[in-house]
Simulated assay, not measured.
Amino acid sequence: DGGFGPWKNHPIGSDPWSTGITLVGLTSYPGLVDKKVIERAVEWLCKNQLPSGYWKYHFIDEGSAYAYWGLTEALKFLGEI
């Protein structure tokens, strides 16, 4: 679906914390990561974000912090900021 979860086929599926921290890790190796993977994760984060700026998951504050960190690194990687 573009996002990442704690592990493959995890019952909750993709979440903002896992997606954000994965983006931080992947963008640390720009020569090895497929740009499409980053783009799809950014799309997942944007599609699932609530109007409040948070995501609907049980770890609202820290989950959102990691999602924003990953999103920032991904947008830098993609040359959008």
Results as ranks from 00 to 15, higher is better:
residue 54 Y to I: 04
residue 48 N to L: 04
residue 39 E to L: 10
residue 33 V to R: 07
residue 38 I to L: 13
residue 45 L to H: 01
residue 33 V to M: 11
residue 32 L to H: 13
residue 30 P to E: 15
residue 42 V to S: 08
residue 36 K to C: 01
residue 52 S to L: 05
residue 35 K to Y: 02
residue 29 Y to M: 09
residue 53 G to A: 05
residue 41 A to H: 01
residue 28 S to W: 03
residue 35 K to D: 05
residue 46 C to I: 06
residue 54 Y to C: 08
residue 37 V to I: 15
residue 40 R to C: 00
residue 60 I to F: 05
residue 58 H to F: 07
residue 28 S to F: 03
residue 52 S to A: 11
residue 53 G to V: 01
residue 30 P to Q: 15
residue 46 C to A: 15
residue 56 K to I: 01
residue 56 K to D: 14
residue 27 T to Y: 13
residue 62 E to Y: 11
residue 60 I to N: 03
residue 61 D to M: 12
residue 51 P to W: 00
residue 28 S to T: 09
residue 27 T to A: 12
residue 54 Y to M: 10
residue 46 C to L: 12
residue 49 Q to A: 14
residue 33 V to N: 04
residue 27 T to M: 12
residue 43 E to N: 09
residue 63 G to E: 08
residue 34 D to E: 15
residue 27 T to N: 04
residue 45 L to I: 02
residue 36 K to N: 10
residue 31 G to F: 12
residue 33 V to W: 07
residue 60 I to K: 10
residue 63 G to C: 09
residue 45 L to Y: 03
residue 54 Y to G: 04
residue 45 L to T: 02
residue 58 H to R: 06
residue 34 D to I: 13
residue 28 S to E: 07
residue 60 I to D: 03
residue 39 E to G: 01
residue 43 E to K: 08
residue 59 F to R: 05
residue 28 S to M: 06
residue 38 I to C: 13
residue 45 L to D: 00
residue 37 V to K: 14
residue 51 P to A: 00
residue 48 N to G: 07
residue 43 E to A: 13
residue 58 H to V: 07
residue 48 N to H: 15
residue 61 D to Y: 11
residue 39 E to N: 01
residue 55 W to Y: 07
residue 34 D to W: 10
residue 32 L to V: 09
residue 49 Q to I: 14
residue 32 L to A: 14
residue 31 G to H: 15
residue 42 V to N: 10
residue 30 P to Y: 13
residue 59 F to N: 07
residue 27 T to L: 14
residue 50 L to Q: 09
residue 36 K to E: 11
residue 40 R to Y: 00
residue 34 D to N: 15
residue 49 Q to F: 08
residue 44 W to F: 12
residue 55 W to V: 00
residue 33 V to E: 09
residue 34 D to G: 08
residue 47 K to A: 14
residue 37 V to S: 14
residue 55 W to A: 02
residue 60 I to Q: 12
residue 59 F to C: 03
residue 62 E to V: 10
residue 47 K to P: 05
residue 45 L to N: 01
residue 50 L to M: 13
residue 43 E to L: 06
residue 36 K to S: 11
residue 58 H to I: 08
residue 38 I to S: 10
residue 39 E to W: 00
residue 36 K to A: 12
